[in-house]
Write a protein that binds this DNA or RNA. Structure first.
Length: 219
DNA sequence: AACAAGATTAACT
DNA sequence: GTTAATCTTGTTA
């Protein structure tokens, strides 16, 4: 197997998305393109990473489900208004840190919620955080669960995802095709009225992603 | 200053 | 299917 298919054989500049990747104002398009990319967390315990398998688009000021709906520019949403390519992390229900990718040019508060990953590196560290061994098919599914696995919290709010550092996203070399992806309405946003039925959720099939990962030699 | 709600999860019945 | 856990944020007074 030629390792240039995966990220291992690539130089950093080739692994990282183009500068324009996050600046696209089509947040739904970016949500789909993030599927199959690798998110990496560099913590005191070590490196943890996973392939992104589920995302949701939040379309700025016009989307009733978005924290920035109606132009709400508050202490919490301020990072959403910055230039795309950074993390927006907030605490939900007082318990769970939820991780978003801020997208679009500065002033356009678009964001993509990361709802699921397939754990790749750092399984032992993740198991420690879970206090039990991890099931790679299940334990990365859920926005509050993957942040726990990756050790992501509110200290990651505003982190630069475009360059290796604390938390970043890179190309994995995996090809997630449309036939592996289900789209549908977003989860847990009943308050959003008519916008609750927008098909802004994208879920890649775990089994097919796992197959692609093994074929590419990523594990 | 007070308060209601929340882009969830795990553990119940 | 129901519910508790848990606390920041944004809104209202």
């Amino acid at each position: 197997m030629d390792s240039s298919d995966g990220s291992q054989g690539m130089r950093i500049s080739e692994r990282m998305p183009d500068r324009d990747f996050y600046l696209d104002d089509d947040v739904v398009g970016i949500s789909k393109r993030l599927l199959g990319m690798k998110i990496v967390s560099n913590t005191p315990e070590g490196i943890c990473s996973g392939i992104i398998t589920e995302t949701e688009a939040y379309a700025g000021e016009t989307d009733r489900a978005s924290h920035a709906f109606g132009g709400r520019l508050t202490q919490r949403t301020e990072v959403m208004y910055r230039e795309g390519g950074i993390a927006y992390v907030y605490l939900c229900y007082g318990l769970h840190s939820l991780l978003n990718v801020v997208t679009g040019p500065a002033g356009l508060p678009h964001a993509v919620l990361i709802r699921g990953i397939y754990p790749l590196e750092g399984a032992g560290i993740m198991a420690g955080r879970l206090k039990r061994s991890i099931d790679v098919r299940k334990d990365g599914l859920g926005p509050g669960k993957l942040t726990r696995l990756l050790g992501v919290g509110k200290s990651h709010n505003g982190a630069d995802l475009r360059n290796p550092g604390l938390l970043w996203i890179e190309h994995s070399g995996l090809a997630i095709t449309e036939n592996m992806v289900i789209s549908g309405p977003r989860i847990g946003i009943d308050y959003a009225g008519e916008d609750a039925m927008l098909p802004y959720r994208f879920l890649a099939d775990v089994v097919q992603v796992e197959k692609a990962i093994k074929k590419a030699g990523l594990v």
